[in-house]
Nucleic acid binder design. Structure first.
Lengths: 344, 344
DNA sequence: TTGAAAGCGCTACCAG
DNA sequence: CTGGTAGCGCTTTCAA
């Protein structure tokens, strides 16, 4: 059932015109006289005519909708990205279909199928932590589906990408800990296969190196699902606290890992930052009112969504195939709060 | 462009059958021989045939998608609701289109237009704080669009509704403050026109009444946009703190108002709960690690999404019109934490 | 400047 | 049991 309005046919018969004339008049074709255009447009407005997008899609093979794949919208970073995406997409007359992987490769594949199946005109994707193989995207891309990666990207995939400056984020966070007097800096992070993990790790490593230190392998812990399950964070933390030389600070990546670590430290009644400093990636608006207020690396989620969508629309609306792809790197912001107050 | 697969026509010509035969075979019609069915299905599976949903929609007038309208997905309560919705919708082969009002009536009207325009089969909606008039929904509903309200509902609208037990939520929170020794209990809440505001207020009022007290009119403050803008919460708080007889506790509704109030109290360095206790509605998973840990009323968001979707699908899939509507009331949970520790 | 007709992929009616 | 055909609402040749 279509609840929206009358059809082009209704207008045609009401005005004693043919459907093709009406169609052309509505699309402001040069073939149609101004008089007829005026007549048609007036009638259309009066009767609140809206073209049926389903019919348009079928005819034109374009659906004016773009698909989004993220791990979960419950993560504030991603909901901010989505808001950015929507702001640009709606402006351009596109609507969006949001799907979630919950960090599962299988769900990602399923969502990709589901979306292409719904005839999307383009895809914005942040890979799941489990994703190693990209065949489900490559064949579509080869067939011409415009794809833009954001956040968690595949570097060996030729298309536009929009990411935060993860290296600098990792560097800044680690450097801040060093500057505040911490020396035994642990790192709890996502699986090493995804791009953001590597990039942030590289920043962490470089900051240590610049301070004349090396990464202590026991200090780096990976959570297979990016903190989706509290258990994986708990294990990581337990292992760190069981070390002979316990860390005096932790740098975490990802909202979930960060807030879960904070929760667990509080639960164990470890004093932050006296017994353990904490800085982590998070986009929660609550960083200021956490206990203690949380030093963090903030990513420009909204802007990332906007940029990614702009690049995607560029491809979708391009007259000819694009081979010249770009990787945009957006700056992150470091917020220093009580959880990393200077040592002693 | 359709990236998904071959068409029914391809199958027909490959197998030397007619499109109608293939169509029927795929739909397992009784008219078709088992042999042909097997042949067609095998070929279809082999070539990864998937029916084009756009064409199906156009033909059948159903799109197998449902529209969602919420104020903002950045609110954890709503993202949990959406997860619940998706879990049920996908199971039934429906996909969802999420839109946000950002508490604006105009955007709500626009989104309703946008969604019906995309030929949704049903609508799940939580009203914006600004919405007073329901004409944009009534006419659609009269035309047969299935609508289910959740969270913020319109009581004078005949359809299914799924809400939390807002009265009890308000009662429990207030009662808990009273039991903890607080007596001057203020209430910062959303505009009085939306359902949840009234219901929670009624609970607040009843709890006071049961304790032999009355609502102090100066203690009740409304935020026009449900806390969307920090200024409106700040004003409310300023007014409360300027009273001769300052409140000793605040009961807030809505995630945004709650967390903003916490932020502002911290910023003013008011000791919580000694100088001001705080309890509020929130679904954030961070309540435990806030400063101080925050007593809260938690709503079953995921479940609410599931139930609402089940009811919506009931209407959509019903053979005959439904006139017997139901309002489901789900229990809330009270979590008591440090922000309402017993007085003195 | 206007209109007739084909066709996007699918379903459904009716004939054989 | 199978197939031809019409038609969902729209766009787009091609003729008039």
């Amino acid at each position: 059932m279509n609840f929206s309005s009358i059809t082009i046919k209704d207008i045609a018969s009401a005005l004693n015109l043919s459907v093709s004339t009406v169609s052309k008049a509505l699309r402001d074709s040069y073939e149609i006289s101004e008089k007829t255009k005026a007549l048609v447009n007036e009638y259309a407005k009066e009767h609140n005519y809206r073209p049926n997008p389903i019919a348009q899609s079928l005819k034109q093979g374009r659906s004016k909708s773009i698909g989004i794949i993220v791990s979960t919208i419950e993560n504030q970073f991603f909901s901010q990205v989505i808001n950015g995406i929507e702001s640009v997409a709606y402006e351009a007359g596109f609507n969006v279909i949001i799907t979630q992987t919950h960090e599962s490769y299988d769900l990602e594949v399923k969502n990709v199928g589901h979306l292409t199946h719904r005839s999307i005109d383009g895809l914005l994707i942040s890979l799941s932590t489990e994703t190693a193989d990209l065949d489900h995207l490559r064949s579509l891309h080869r067939q011409g589906l415009p794809i833009v990666f954001f956040d968690r990207v595949a570097h060996d995939f030729e298309t536009h990408k929009v990411i935060a400056d993860n290296f600098k984020g990792g560097y800044d966070a680690t450097r801040h800990l060093l500057d505040s007097g911490y020396r035994r800096i642990a790192h709890i992070t996502s699986p090493p296969n995804i791009s953001i993990t590597k990039e942030r790790y590289a920043g962490y490593q470089k900051a240590l190196e610049d301070a004349g230190m090396a990464v202590h392998p026991d200090y780096v812990k990976h959570c297979a699902h990016g903190g989706r399950d509290i258990g994986e964070v708990e294990n990581a933390l337990n292992e760190l606290l069981a070390l002979d030389e316990k860390p005096d600070a932790i740098f975490t990546t990802s909202d979930r890992i960060t807030t879960t670590t904070l929760y667990l430290l509080n639960k164990r009644q470890l004093k932050i930052p006296q017994e353990m400093a904490l800085i982590g990636y998070t986009n929660t608006t609550l960083a200021d009112v956490l206990n203690p207020s949380l030093s963090s690396v903030y990513q420009p989620g909204f802007e990332m969504g906007q940029k990614a969508t702009q690049k995607l629309l560029e491809i979708i609306l391009a007259k000819r195939p694009i081979y010249d792809f770009e990787t945009m790197v957006l700056p992150t912001q470091l917020f220093t709060r009580s959880s990393t107050a200077p040592k002693n």
